[in-house]
Amino acid sequence: MDHADRPDRPVTSAWVTVDLVIFTVRDDALQVLLVERGKEPFQGRTALPGGYVGTDEGLEQAARRELWEETGVDSHDLHLEQLGGYGTPGRDPRGRVVTVAYLALGPEMPEPVAGTDARRAHWTPVEKALDDEGRHLAFDHAVILRDALERARKQLEYTTIASAFCTEPFTISELRHVYEVVWGQPLDPSNFRRKVLKAERFVVATGQRTASVAGRPAALYRRGEKKLLVPALLRAGEE
């Protein structure tokens, strides 16, 4: 090895894990999927689902496997993207562990089924999960959860990802509800509708309407093919 290629400080081997932040809208709240750890460290504490990356699998493959093994949720029904890496020394008492976090979004999903080393899996309102700054969460999962929440809120401004929370077909009102829940602020219905329909290929009309016994039936839409939201939909205070 050339001297210039040598590290200028001691290095150590590290284990690699994946953690998942899965958001959905349930009971008019943004909820996150959490598990109760069935073994040490942090046995009995609440955590994000996740685990070690196998020697024969990639990061995303490991994330999808861990999600299925610990909760019984099929990741192929979700929007899945890499959130970032977390490697602060001491974040895991077992040793040097670097985790790669993934953000997953999906429409209202059923109750998960715990498996492998998870004692219980359950949906929890994000606001409740971050009570007391999330100190009850294992590892550095409160930090990861806060980062994921801000990523999701930002994504709603500049991408069409909000439709991933909706079961097709959906109404503009249902889409607006997603924004209100994730952003935590009410939106003017008329103004929101105008902005959504003005955005290039955000939603596509199906030509159908809801079956309503009272009031005017609402138009139904499906997801458009556009990924970036043009023009952007900004939160109050972001304009």
Rank of each mutant, 00 (worst) to 15 (best):
P7D: 01
D8W: 10
D8L: 14
D8V: 14
V11E: 00
T12Q: 10
A14E: 00
V18A: 15
D19M: 14
R26A: 03
D27V: 01
D27A: 03
D27C: 04
D28W: 07
D28G: 09
L33K: 00
V35Q: 01
G38S: 07
E40G: 07
Q43V: 09
R45T: 04
G51M: 06
Y52C: 09
E57I: 13
A63Y: 12
R64Q: 06
L67K: 08
L67D: 00
G72L: 07
D77W: 15
D77E: 08
L78I: 07
L78F: 11
L78V: 13
E81V: 14
G84A: 12
Y86A: 01
Y86F: 11
G87M: 02
T88D: 06
T88K: 11
R91D: 01
R94K: 10
G95S: 03
G95E: 00
T99A: 09
L105Q: 02
G106T: 04
E108L: 08
M109W: 02
E111K: 14
R119N: 06
E127K: 06
K128V: 04
A129S: 14
A129K: 14
E133R: 13
H136C: 05
A138V: 12
A138C: 13
D140V: 15
A142F: 12
D147E: 06
K154G: 00
L156Y: 15
L156T: 06
E157H: 10
E157Q: 06
E157D: 01
Y158Q: 13
T159Q: 15
T160C: 15
A164D: 02
I172T: 10
L175W: 03
R176C: 08
R176N: 06
H177Q: 08
V181N: 08
W183A: 09
P186K: 05
P189I: 08
K198M: 00
A199E: 01
A199T: 06
E200A: 11
E200L: 15
F202K: 13
V203E: 00
V204I: 14
A205D: 04
G207R: 05
S212H: 01
A214P: 15
A214V: 12
A214S: 07
R216S: 04
A219H: 02
R222V: 09
G224S: 09
G224A: 11
L228V: 05
L229W: 13
P231V: 07
L233I: 04
L234G: 00
